[in-house]
Design a protein around this nucleic acid. Structure first.
Length: 431
DNA sequence: TATCCACAGGAAATCAGGGTGT
DNA sequence: ACACCCTGATTTCCTGTGGATA
């Protein structure tokens, strides 16, 4: 017989816990609050530039910088909401704000197509197939129709991702758009997470895009406390947060680059944990636990969602580290990857070039560290090391249908450390 | 001090898979 | 049916490099 799940008991337990949340949406990083903490200066700047364009001046393009969770996106959304409301209330033509996230929309074609679709959803542009210059013409037609006599603000969030991937051609087209338009005008607002974004731009784009630059510094712990307190007052029911909770979330997030998004996430998770555990209040312990959960979930999500090749590369590094190899060099990782790959697939493994690329991606995600060092005559290589708890990775791999059984595998580099280091000829033979 | 190792990583090409208009 | 387009993943080709060692 299966044990019988006592639903009634669970329900009773659950109801006995306090009602933690009043409205958890207030802890969502996507919510644009009524008041933005510590961003008056930046908001004023955006507003000035935008209003000058709306009064008929030549629209200036804006570049906004700052690391993740410093309020860039929230500020621009806040300003666009206020401006739209203002023009609406005054009975004037409301300016158009097109918001695009370049993490998702990351090629010239897609940006232009997406803008077209936002301006006129009734005639969708196919997601591939058409030449880019054709949809550029279509875009200027649609801008002319939709923004007659007013300004279209094109907000390109995470614009650095777009430029890194597709170059600055998109920005070039957009900043030149005004020359072709009769009654509508376009202003580009680029939001970048990296501070040296301008280095990625060619001079022809740089001069027009960086007409106005606005810097968003990281929040310090005090500012984060203000932000959290304002949100928590609406998100939680009175009395459920212990006093130390908000300062702790703020301190933990301040340590990690002053990321408000992270601070909010931490607070929300702590609340959810209290709810699940039927507690009557949120305390420090729950915050620490949530922090652990966040790191675990991040790794788990990555491993379960990434493609086979990426998982194999991570597994190779894991096995080498698990078996005590130190340091772990790219060459050994590649050899191990090939061994693993051949044991589960018949066709060719990836080349070394691609595997180094995948390893680089792992290090960008913070799952491993990669440090390039020279061993003199024994060559130059990158030393890799896993940054998350090995136990955590082991559990995640163990649950992987395809890779679970490979956990017991001992890489050649571990079995026969006496063998000569792998070299270019060796790789040729493998691929 | 010139050499040489074991890669790093940029650039361009290729491939397969999804489309388009005529 | 055909010529042409866009995309993401990958390969191919290549030049560059830090520093122990001959």
């Amino acid at each position: 017989m299966f044990p019988i799940l006592d639903i009634k008991q669970l329900l009773t337990d659950y109801s006995a816990g306090a009602n933690i949340f009043n409205d958890r949406d207030y802890l969502s990083p996507n919510l644009v609050p009524q008041e933005l903490v510590s961003r008056d200066e930046q908001i004023t700047q955006i507003l000035q530039v935008a209003m000058s364009a709306l009064k008929g001046g030549a629209p200036s393009n804006i570049l906004m910088y700052g690391t993740t969770g410093t309020g860039k996106t929230a500020s621009i959304k806040y300003v666009s909401r206020e401006i739209s409301q203002h023009f609406h209330d005054a009975g004037n033509r409301v300016p158009v704000f097109l918001y695009l996230n370049c993490q998702e929309v990351n090629t010239t074609y897609r940006v232009i197509a997406q803008m077209c679709n936002m301006l006129n959803p009734d005639e969708p542009i196919p997601f591939t197939g058409l030449p880019t210059d054709v949809i550029l013409v279509e875009l200027s037609n649609r801008l002319e129709k939709a923004c007659q006599g007013t300004v279209c603000f094109v907000v390109l969030d995470e614009v650095d991702v777009l430029v890194k991937k597709a170059g600055d051609e998109t920005l070039y087209h957009l900043t030149r758009m005004n020359a072709q338009l009769q009654s509508a005008r376009v202003a580009v607002i680029g939001i970048s997470n990296i501070l040296d974004f301008k280095d990625l731009l060619s001079p022809r784009v740089l001069s027009s895009l960086s007409e106005e630059e606005i810097l968003f510094p990281a929040y310090n712990a005090t500012e984060l406390i203000d932000i959290l307190a304002a949100r928590a007052a609406r998100a939680f029911n009175p009395g459920v947060l212990e006093d130390a909770v908000i300062p702790l979330c703020a301190a933990l997030a301040a340590k990690e680059n002053g990321d408000a998004r992270k601070a909010l996430d931490l607070l929300r998770r702590a609340g959810e944990l209290a709810e699940r555990k039927c507690r009557i209040a949120v305390n420090e312990d729950l915050v620490y636990q949530s922090q652990e959960d966040m790191s675990r979930d991040r790794v788990q999500d990555f491993v379960t969602q990434s493609p086979l090749q990426q998982r194999l590369v991570l597994l190779s590094i894991f096995l080498l580290q698990q078996n005590g190899l130190d340091p772990i060099k790219t060459g050994e990782v590649y050899a191990t990857y090939c061994e693993l790959y051949k044991s589960i697939e018949r066709d060719n493994p990836l080349t070394l070039r691609r595997v180094t690329q995948l390893a680089k991606e792992l290090s960008l995600l913070g799952i491993i560290t990669a440090q390039t060092k020279s061993d003199g005559r024994r060559g130059r290589s990158t030393y890799l090391k896993i940054q998350v708890p090995l136990k955590q990775l082991q559990n995640t791999f163990a649950a992987d249908v395809r890779l679970g059984e490979l956990l017991a595998y001992k890489p050649r580099a571990v079995r026969r450390p006496d063998l000569a280091p792998v070299n270019a000829k060796f790789y040729k033979k493998l691929t």
